[in-house]
Amino acid sequence: MEKLQLLQGVAAPLPRANIDTDIITPAKRLLDANRETMHQHTFEPLRFLADGDENPDFILNKPGYRDAVILITGRNFGCGSSRETAVWGLRGLGIRCVIAESFGDIFFNNCFQNSLLPIRLPGETIAELLAEAGNDQGNMQFQVDVANCTLTTPSGRTITFDLTPDRQTALLEGLDEVGQTLQEDAATAAFQARDRKARPWIYDLGTVD
C-alpha cells in the first residue's frame, strides 16, 4: 500500500448527506472493475449531465477544485454497497482524504485498505470547514498531518482527529494487511486445531451432490 504522511492541497466542499456508493460508483461500472480507470465514472450521476458533458455545477468540475486532494462532505458518506471501487475511484480522482461527520462502516474500512484517510469530525466543525473550503474559489491550501493527527485549515486553524494507532502506522509505513496477517498463520493453525475438536461440523461439511 502507498504511504500517506503529509497531505497538502485544495479541499472541495460537497455538502450533501447520505452519498451512497451507488452514486460514487454506479453499478454498471462495476463490471469492468479496474483500479486504474474507475475514476472516469466516479460521481457519474452528479458529475456529468444526461448528454455526457460535465456538469458545471458539480464541485470537482469547477475551476480551482479540479485538483482537490480533500473532500469535505455531508454525514453518512459512503453508505450502501460494499464496492471498494468507490474508494479506487476517489483515489483515481486524486482524493486522499475525506472529511465527514460519519461514514458507512464498510466504506470507512475500505479507505484504509487503499491509503485514503477518512476523518470523522463533529457536525459544527464540518459546517465551518465547508464554509472555509468554499471561499476564494478553492485556491486555499489545507494540510493533513497523519503523524500528528492534525488538520490545518487555510485560516491557520488546527483541528485534531482520531486515528487508531494500527491504522496510523499502516498509513505512515504503507503496510499491507495480508502480509501482516500471513505472519500470524501459526495462531490461525492453532485456533483451527482447537476449534476442530469443539466444532467439527464447521470443518467437515456435507456435500450437495
Binding site: 460494499s82 464498510i106 474500512n109 475500505n110
Partner: peptide
Amino acid sequence: WGIGSSEVVHVLATQTVRQRRP
C-alpha cells in the same frame, strides 16, 4: 457481515478477518 474486495483477498489468503468490535 459484508467486506470490501481487499478484505476478500485477505480472507482467501489467511482464513481470517481483522475487525474492530462494534
